[in-house]
Structures are given as structure tokens and as C-alpha cells.
């Protein structure tokens, strides 16, 4: 604020330069300035002159506002009315957003519990046990998505206005679900399946495709670590399975024509995951830990 006033003063003193206004002879100006100081006995500093000018200005402006009150002058009451209306509108959307954020926060805590449970997979806990633990959280998330859908029903057609507020949560949820699904079935979680798991309906409150794809990219980040830990635990066939899955996934993504955005960046990261898995597979293979016959199919190996 202070700097604004300083600027104001500089602009003022600059604009007082009589050269900028041809109507006044140069010689008049110094006279004016001196007499302005002498005219009022108390004014001995620049700031007083400034006050004087502002007072002067406000006097003239109120004069003219009284004179030109004709049809050409605008009525500030109609401006006020419109802005009052905007204020009500924006306050409503603000409170709606707050409610959405509250749901998103609840999602986040459910995600954290789910994620910590899912991390047990790196300690070679059996998958069914983990699934059992995670199931409760999925139900919670489903309920939260339902609540989100209810809130959004109040503002039809504005899904993408508020989308950013639950976006990153949704992406994380998709990544966890996709990882779980892969552990369970060895297949990729489809978009429709993900919607189904979360109780979403594409016609009303659907799962955005980009969010789904980003979630899948997040999942691939988890795989290299999983492979290493599985090999450590003695599952030497795991790298081959993961490598096949990831290669296919990468190929599928490559078919997409992505524009230069967040999803593209995430996809570009996927090739590093792929390479790490390849390295693990190479290590396992070169040490002869895996059976040489894996080219024949999905025959498990007992090294």
C-alpha cells in the first residue's frame, strides 16, 4: 500500500510538470508553487501541498457530479445491484467448494490407510489377507464418492469447474485400485471396472478418462519396487510376469496421442519403471534363477 502512495506522489509531481500541458505558460508554474507554500501558513512540507491538491480535486469532482446529473451519467446503484448479485453467486459457489474439499480431505485419509495396508505386499504378505484389509477402505471411498455426486447434483453441468478439487485424490485411488486388481487377477483394471468399484456412473458422475490414465501411470511406479522385493522373497518368476504386463501397458499408452501435459509427463516416466523391471529380469535370468523354458508360455518356475 505504501509503495502505491509513493508511486502516486511521483506520478503526481511528474504530471504537474507544466510542459505536459500546453495550456499553461512555463513561467506561471514556479509562481504557483511558491505562492502555494506561502498561501497557507501551516504548509511547509511537500505532503501538505499534496493534501491541498487532493482536497482541491475532491472539491471539484463533487461539484461536477452535482452539475452533470443528467441522463448521460451512469447510476452507481445499478452497478451495485449487479455486483450484489455476483457476490451472492460467488459465495454460493465458494461454500459448495468448501463442502467438496471436506469430502476430498476425508478421501485423502481413507487413501492413506489403504495405501499403508497395501504396502504390506512388499513384505510378501499373502494377497488375500491384504485384500481383506483394504476392502473396508474401498467401501468408505465408495460412500465418499456417492456424497460427492450428491453435492455436484446441486450444480448440474459444472463438474469440470470443481474437478480440480478432487482430482489428485481420484488419481491416487485409481492407482491403488489398479495395483490391487493386478495383484488379484494379473490384468489391467479397465476404466469401466474402476467406475464400477467406486460406484460411479458415467452418465451422471463419471470417472474422468485422464484421471484414470494418470492413475494407471502412478501404478506402474509401484511395480519395480514390488519386483525387487518379490525376487528377494524367492519368487523368481515375478519379474517375467511384471515385465510382460508393463511392456503391454507401455505399448498401449504409446498408441495414445497425448498433448504436452501432466499425463504426458507421467507416461514419459513409465519407461524408467520398465527399464528397472527389465534389469531385474536380466539379473534373475543371467544367474540362472529362472527356468530357460519361459518362452514356451506362462509356466511357473521352481528355481
Amino acid at each position: 500500500m505504501k509503495s502505491v502512495f509513493r508511486n502516486a506522489y511521483f506520478t503526481l509531481s511528474r504530471s504537474l510538470n507544466p510542459n505536459s500541458n500546453p495550456k499553461f505558460p512555463l513561467s506561471l508554474f514556479p509562481v504557483c508553487r511558491i505562492s502555494a507554500i506561502t498561501a497557507s501558513p501551516s504548509s511547509s512540507s511537500c505532503s501538505n501541498i499534496r493534501n491541498e491538491k487532493f482536497r482541491l480535486f475532491s472539491a471539484t469532482s463533487s461539484d461536477s457530479s452535482m452539475t452533470d446529473g443528467g441522463a448521460s451519467s451512469y447510476s452507481s446503484s445499478s452497478v451495485e445491484k449487479q455486483f450484489e448479485h455476483f457476490r451472492v453467486q460467488l459465495e454460493q459457489s465458494g461454500s459448495l467448494r468448501e463442502r467438496i474439499r471436506a469430502v476430498a480431505t476425508a478421501m485423502e485419509s481413507a487413501i492413506r490407510i489403504m495405501h499403508s495396508n497395501l504396502l504390506l505386499v512388499h513384505q510378501s504378505r499373502p494377497v488375500p489377507e491384504i485384500l481383506e484389509k483394504v476392502k473396508g477402505q474401498i467401501a468408505v471411498l465408495k460412500e465418499l464418492f456417492h456424497r460427492l455426486g450428491e453435492i455436484l447434483r446441486e450444480c448440474p453441468g459444472q463438474y469440470y469447474r470443481y474437478h480440480g478439487d478432487w482430482r489428485s485424490e481420484t488419481q491416487t485411488i485409481v492407482s491403488l485400485l489398479a495395483f490391487l486388481h493386478w495383484l488379484e487377477t494379473g490384468n489391467l483394471l479397465m476404466h469401466t471396472e474402476a467406475e464400477e468399484k467406486l460406484g460411479l456412473d458415467a452418465s451422471e458422475f463419471g470417472l474422468d478418462i485422464e484421471d484414470y490414465l494418470v492413475g494407471v501411470c502412478f501404478m506402474s511406479n509401484e511395480l519395480p519396487r514390488y519386483v525387487v522385493n518379490q525376487v528377494t522373497a524367492g519368487d523368481y518368476d515375478c519379474p517375467r510376469k511384471v515385465l510382460k504386463f508393463l511392456t503391454d501397458l507401455h505399448a498401449a499408452f504409446q498408441m495414445l496421442n497425448l498433448r504436452n501435459d501432466f499425463l504426458r509427463k507421467k507416461f514419459d516416466g513409465m519407461k524408467y519403471d520398465l527399464r528397472r523391471v527389465e534389469e531385474v529380469y536380466y539379473d534373475v535370468k543371467i544367474r540362472g534363477l529362472t527356468a530357460s523354458g519361459d518362452s514356451t508360455g506362462d509356466q511357473g518356475t521352481q528355481a
Partner: peptide, 14 residues
Amino acid sequence: ENADASNSWLTFLS
């Protein structure tokens, strides 16, 4: 505001 002010000031003085 400043342009206005300096101008009213000069008008006044003139």
C-alpha cells in the same frame, strides 16, 4: 486520479 488532480489544480490556478 493524479492526472485529474493535477489538472484541476492547474485549472484552479489559471
